[in-house]
Structures are given as C-alpha cells and as structure tokens.
C-alpha cells in the first residue's frame, strides 16, 4: 500500500443546528498537514454548508463559512457537491461560494475546486476512496 491514501470527508448536515459541519472542517484543516490525497463531498443538507452570504447574527453563532474559501490554500482541490441534493433544495452552483485553488502545474492558474456530480458519480468516488470520514 502506498503512503498516500485517498481521504474523503463526507458532509451531510446543515452548517448550523448541529456542530458536525464546524468540527468536520476542523478535521479537514488538521488533516491537510498530513499530505494525503484529500477530497470533500457535500450532500443532503450538507450542501448548505457551501452557500454564500451566510449571516449568523440572529443565532449568535460564529459564521465559519469564510473558512471554506481557505481550503485552496491548504491544497484541497477536490470538492464534490451532489447534484440531486442541490436540486432537491432548489439550489444551483450559483448559490454556492466560488471556491478555487492555484494549480502549480499550470503556471498557478486559478481553477474551480467545486465539481457538481451525480449521486451515481459520488458513489464511484466513495468506492475509490481509502478512508471515508462521515459527518
């Protein structure tokens, strides 16, 4: 087995209401230091985690959504969002933050991190992962 494993962080819950989304992000940020092959998946209510213009003033909780835009700096380039979950909630990719990374193999070109995938494609991505952490 090679030293680098494929880690997939599966995010299924809304950003607020429970702490899973916030603490998942904490694992992702720590895990980024281990130089593994990292991907994130957002499905079910988890797609709300990436929505833009979040405002948490009314619930007096920290709005941690700006942290997602730092994922590119942590060399996290693969963020999968399930198409069906977006559609069920009346969302499109335009409702999500524009997340990017810089590709050092392509003259540091700025590239999109988010890929909208079908449930079937996501199942294949899960199948190809070595370690799946589900939140």
């Amino acid at each position: 087995m090679s030293d680098v494993k494929k880690f997939l962080y599966v995010n299924r819950k809304a950003p607020y209401g429970t702490i899973y989304a916030l603490e998942s992000l904490e694992v992702v940020l720590i895990g980024a230091a281990f130089e593994q092959d990292v991907a994130l998946a957002f499905l079910d209510d988890g797609v709300y985690q990436l929505t833009k213009d979040q405002n948490t003033d009314g619930i007096e909780m920290k709005n941690f959504s700006p942290t997602y835009s730092a994922l590119g700096d942590y060399d996290i380039r693969k963020i999968y969002v399930e198409k069906e979950s977006l559609e069920e909630r009346g969302l499109t990719i335009d409702d999500l933050q524009h997340l990017t990374y810089e590709d050092e193999d392509d003259d540091w070109a700025e590239k999109d991190s988010i890929q909208v995938v079908t449930a079937k494609e996501l199942a294949e991505i899960m199948d190809q992962s070595d370690v799946i952490l589900s939140f």
Partner: peptide, 11 residues
Amino acid sequence: SGLGQLIEAGI
C-alpha cells in the same frame, strides 16, 4: 490528544 491521531489512524 489532537486530531492528528485520527488522521494517523486513517493512514
């Protein structure tokens, strides 16, 4: 201990 212990377990 820290979250690194979880990642290490994954590896």
